[in-house]
Amino acid sequence: MLPPDGDAADRFQPLRPGLVRLAYRMLGSITEAEDVVQEAYIRWHQTDRSVIREPGAFLSRTVTRLCLDILKSARVRRETYIGPWLPEPVLETAGDEDVSEDLSLTLMMALERLSPLERAAFLLHDVFGLGFEEVAATLDRDPAACRQLAARARKNVRADRPRYPVDREEGERMTDAFFAASRSGDLTALQNLLAENVVAYTDGGGVRNAALNPLFGFRRVSGLFMGVARKDDGRLPPVLYKGLINGLPGIVTLEKDGIVQTMTLDIEDGRIVGVYIVRNPEKLRHLSGLAN
């Protein structure tokens, strides 16, 4: 006989935010993460909870396995995705300060380069603190294999973590300066902001105009924004949000086609080394309320 329904909800709700973060890190999609967590809740609701000693471990295992199933088909979708793929942007909200680094865009992109099993082992052990016995039970592998998976992932991820996270005030100042320079076509200002080895990713998903490949180097990146400025006659679109996006400084703007857009900056040693722009409407639905 199952415990009462109220018990299921009462024990599940405090765990929901962490489960959504786990699913988002696995999938890079807020929509899919929320769907996975809802499916995990349905399974939790149908389970004999009286025999489960650690609900958090049980639900983390359930969410991870659901995500691994999705990633099998996601790999195929990513291979046919038009242009660079970026994760759905997540805006910082109250209480997020302690998880911003683990949601950072650079980390999410590093995770994307891992195999699904490497990603799961790293997240469960290094980020969520599960022991390798529990990781092994989740992934249906032995603990030694899970240690190797996590070690390989850790080596790749460590190279992509920022050495010196930018100060929040400095990040906001540089975001303001870059937004003004890139949209007005101020080449001199761009020269003072962009690193020579800067890279820009623009994710339009084949739905909105965007570069089909990452742009490397100051000349190509500045050329992109000079072209945007000419098309927009140097006019600045309304800013709907300014703050951290996936742990990095950025803004959300309302573009002239009426759809929101995010721009996030990776800053090192006072220069912008990465520009990440999400234009694909499918990845911005959860931000559409900002325009109302």
Rank of each mutant, 00 (worst) to 15 (best):
A9M: 10
G18M: 00
Y24T: 00
M26H: 06
Q38P: 10
R43E: 14
W44F: 04
D48Q: 13
S50N: 13
V51P: 00
R53V: 12
A57E: 14
F58E: 08
C67A: 07
R75L: 10
Y81H: 15
G83F: 00
V90H: 11
D96H: 09
D102L: 11
L111M: 00
R113Y: 06
F122N: 12
L123W: 00
L124T: 01
L124S: 00
D126N: 13
L130M: 00
L130K: 11
E133K: 10
V135E: 08
A137M: 02
P143W: 05
C146G: 12
K155W: 14
R168E: 14
S184L: 07
G185E: 08
A189N: 05
L190Q: 08
Q191E: 15
Q191W: 12
N192D: 15
A200L: 15
Y201R: 06
Y201S: 05
D203F: 03
L215H: 06
R220S: 05
M226D: 13
V239E: 12
K242F: 00
G247D: 01
P249I: 10
V252Y: 11
T253D: 04
T253R: 12
D257R: 04
T264K: 00
L265H: 05
G270F: 01
V273W: 01
R279Q: 09
R279L: 02
N280R: 09
L287Q: 04
